[in-house]
Amino acid sequence: MNLFRLMGDVSHVLAVFILLAKIWRTRSAAGISGRSQILFTIVYLARYMDLFFSFISLYNTVMKLLFISASCATVYLIYFKFRATYDGNHDTFRIEFVLVPSLLLAFIFHYSMSFFELAWSFSIFLEAVAILPQLFMVTKTGEAENITSHYLFALGSYRALYILNWIYRYYTEGHFDPIAVCAGIVQTILYCDFFYLYVTKVLQGRKLQVLP
C-alpha cells in the first residue's frame, strides 16, 4: 500500500458517500444517472467475486464489501425508494454500448482464461466507461448540481491517483498491470473535460454549466 493508492481509495469512498448522502438527504435522484450506478454495481460485483475466497487484508475485504453495498444501496434509492424523482428522460445512454465492448475486450485481453480473470478484466474495462451515462446526462441537462460535481471530481480523482500509484509501484517494486493501467488512463481522460469545467466553474463558486 502507498499514499497514492490510499488517497485514491479515500477519494473513491468519499465519492460513494457524497452521492449516497446527496440522494438520501435531498430524498431525490434528480440529475443522477441510474444507468451509471447500475454499471458501477456490475463493476464491483464482477471484480470482487474473489471476496469470498481470497483474503488479502482486512482493509481490502472491508472496502470491497463497502463498494458493493454502497452501489447496491444507491441503485435501490434511485430505482425504488426515490423512483419518482429519477429523471429517466435524460438518462438515456445505451449501456449495452459499453457492456458489449467491455465483454469483448475481456475475451481479448485477460491474464488467464478463467472465469474470475475474465470477470476481473471485464470489470476493469467496464469501470473505465461506467461514468459515460452520467457525463452524457450532464451534457443533456446542460448542468450539474454542485454536489454532483463534487461527486464526479472525487470519483475522477480516485483513478487519477491510482495512475500515480501504478507509477510508484512500477519504480519501487516493478509491479506493472497493463490492463488496469490502460483502462485507468482511458477512465481518467474521460474526466478531463469535466475536471476543466469543475476547476474553472465550480471552484469559482459558480454552477457547473456545460455550454449548450
Binding site: 473513491h12 471484480r47 472496502m63 485477460h110 491474464y111 478463467s114 509491479h175 497493463p178 490492463i179
Partner: peptide, 10 residues
C-alpha cells in the same frame, strides 16, 4: 499478457 492474476488492488 503478464500473468499477474493476483489482484491486490481494489
Amino acid at each position: 499478457l503478464l500473468r499477474n492474476t493476483f489482484h491486490d488492488e481494489l
